[in-house]
Design a protein around this nucleic acid. Structure first.
Lengths: 141, 141
DNA sequence: TATTGTTATACTCTATAACTATA
DNA sequence: TATAGTTATAGAGTATAACAATA
C-alpha cells in the first residue's frame, strides 16, 4: 500500500497552484472564466434559464444576469422567452456564439491548451486527464 | 500505448473546473488566495522583497504593495529595510503571521482540505497528489 | 539613467439589497 | 404570496500610469 497522503499539505499546494493558474488564465483569455464556462455549457447542454445557469456555475442569479447581458451584447447568446412561463428567459447560443466557441477551441483556447500540449509529455497529459474528474468533483460539491 | 489525449478538450475542462474551484475557495477562505499564498511562501522560503514576491506570485509590483500593506495591517507580516539597499523592503512573517498560518493549516485550511479528505478515496488522493506537480508546472511558466 | 517601491485611479467580476413582472 | 429576473450599488482583487526615492 502506498503511503498516506497529507491532505492538508495537498490542499495547500493545490490552492496555491489554482490561484496562479487562474491569474495566468485571466491574463491570457479573451473571455472571463465564467462567460467562457457558460458558452461551453450552452453548447454541450442546450438552452438553459438564467437561474439554472447561476446554480450550475455557482454564482448568484444577479451575477448571471450581468454575465448573460455581456454575452448578449457581444451577440454570442440570445434570450428567448419561455412560452410556458413568461417569467423565465431561456438563453441559447447564437450562430456567432457557436462560431466563436468553435474558433476558440480550434485555437486550443489559448495559453492553457498550448501549455498542456507543449509542456507536458503524453504520459503527463494522461495523468492530468485522469486527475481532472477529481478536480471536477471537488468543484461540484 | 494509451490513446492520445485531446489537449484542447482537456484544457477546456480544466479551465472550467478551475473557475468553479476558485469561486468556491474565495467564498470559503478567510484570506484572499494571493495573501494566503504569500504567507505560505514567506514561511517556506523566508524573507523576500516586494518585487520578488510580485514576480513569484505573478502579480504586478503595485498589486503586491497593496497585498503586503493589507497583511501588514493585520499584523501578519513586517517590513524590514534592506541594510544593503535602501530602496528594497524585506517582508517577513511576524509571530502572529506564523501562528495564523499554522492555525489555518491545523484546521485543514477549511473547505478544500476537508473536501479532499472526505470526498476523495485514498487512491484518488494519491492520484491528485501525483497530478499536482503538473498543475504547478503549468502555473509556473 | 535604471531600479524599487508607492500613490492614484480604473477596470473586472461577483455580492447584497431593493425592485418589477409573472405565476 | 412566491418565483424569475433586473437594477442599483458596493466590495474584492488586480491592472495601468504617474511619481518619489535610492542606486
Amino acid at each position: 500500500m502506498a503511503s498516506a497522503v497529507d491532505t492538508t499539505l495537498l490542499a495547500s499546494r493545490l490552492r496555491l497552484a489554482l490561484g496562479q493558474l487562474v491569474r495566468r488564465l485571466r491574463a491570457e483569455h479573451r473571455f472571463p472564466l465564467t462567460q467562457s464556462s457558460v458558452l461551453g455549457r450552452l453548447d454541450r447542454e442546450g438552452a438553459r434559464s438564467i437561474g439554472d445557469l447561476a446554480a450550475l456555475e455557482r454564482v448568484r442569479p444577479q451575477s448571471m444576469t450581468q454575465i448573460v447581458a455581456d454575452l448578449e451584447g457581444c451577440g454570442l447568446i440570445e434570450r428567448r422567452s419561455d412560452p410556458s412561463d413568461g417569467r423565465r428567459a431561456l438563453v441559447v447560443l447564437t450562430e456567432r456564439g457557436q462560431q466563436t466557441l468553435t474558433e476558440d477551441r480550434r485555437h486550443r483556447e489559448g495559453w492553457l491548451a498550448h501549455a498542456v500540449a507543449e509542456d507536458l509529455s503524453p504520459r503527463e497529459q494522461r495523468l492530468l486527464a485522469d486527475a481532472l474528474p477529481l478536480l471536477e468533483r471537488l468543484a461540484e460539491d
